[in-house]
Amino acid sequence: MAVGAAITNGSTGMIALAAGIAISASAFAAAWAEKGIGTAAIGAMAEKEELFGKGLILTVIPETIVIFGLVIAILIIGMAG
């Protein structure tokens, strides 16, 4: 998208970098949060298989973080025009 422009224009580069930080930091945060929940959910499912639904829900709850990160990243890129 704005990659070509980023090389020539300093401020566009900073915008692209900001978008990158927004998505990568939020993705890392979501992954970190899901790691713990997912492990516990699998453990619970091993004991009681009916917990799949609840386990899935609890596991995907932090996913909202990365979605927000992606939305923010898209908005930031929008600033580059």
């Binding site: 909202t64 979605i67 927000f68």
Partner: peptide
Amino acid sequence: FGNILSYLRLMAIGLS
């Protein structure tokens, strides 16, 4: 509001 904003994933996943 978190719940409603969560529907932004409809856009985000589509865009990817």
